[in-house]
């Protein structure tokens, strides 16, 4: 009975989303080249969070996997030290649902990029080059590393990222997630303005 109810709920949810996306553009799958309408993509991600909660009993989120993989690397390099860490006693570093989600996302994005002819080997985004100069590889590598460190540290401190708090938490109407979502944008807007508008 439980699983038979999910189909009508899905139909009710997806059909207005697709028709809305069709109104927004002539064809939901034709939106400036290989891109899909953001409304269609958003609606499908919304349905995916719902299916994830139903089938996997988990909120959709990407950032926990990084701490798990860091722990798996740590187990290989310094097993005794890694096992002694309190975080890994509370959250065992194993290959789990979250880690597979991240591996799957690499594959899914590869398929989508291949399908749309968007596979690239680009080091410097065009917007970056226009601002920081052609061939600014060293600066980009340093900044990308620093950004990654700050972002993952912040995600663990805040308890989630753009998907865990920003989508899954916000749609569950979690107070902490809405505060986090606002703060993501406050930090991001201030930084982007400093980098590209000054």
């Amino acid at each position: 009975m439980r699983s038979s109810m999910i189909i009508p709920i899905l139909v009710v949810l997806v059909s207005p989303a697709i028709s809305a996306a069709q109104e927004a553009g002539a064809d939901p799958l034709q939106y400036s080249g290989p891109a899909w309408s953001p409304y269609l993509v958003g609606a499908l991600i919304g349905v995916l969070t719902m299916l994830t909660l139903y089938f996997s009993n988990k909120p959709l989120g990407a950032s926990t996997a990084y701490a798990r993989v860091a722990g798996l690397i740590g187990k290989g390099v310094a097993p005794r030290h890694t096992q002694a860490l309190k975080y890994y006693q509370d959250n065992k570093p194993v290959i789990d649902w979250e880690v597979m989600l991240v591996f799957g996302a690499i594959g899914g994005a590869f398929l989508a990029a291949w399908h749309g002819g968007e596979l690239t080997g680009e080091w410097l985004p065009a917007m970056w080059e226009a601002r920081f100069g052609e061939g600014s590889y060293a600066l980009r590598i340093g900044v990308a590393l620093a950004g990654g460190i700050l972002m993952a540290f912040g995600a663990r401190l805040a308890g989630g990222c753009t998907s865990g708090h920003g989508i899954s938490g916000a749609l569950q109407l979690s107070v902490g997630s809405w505060i986090a979502l606002i703060c993501f944008f406050v930090g991001g807007i201030a930084t982007a303005m400093l980098m590209f508008r000054l």
Binding site: A62, M151, A155, A180, I182, G187, G188, A190
Partner: peptide, 18 residues
């Protein structure tokens, strides 16, 4: 504190964890 750090890192990197 974490979410503001996250936002700064996301703008600097240009991508989020997902």
């Amino acid at each position: 504190f974490g979410a503001v750090c996250f936002g700064i890192g996301m703008a600097v990197l240009g991508y989020c964890p997902g």
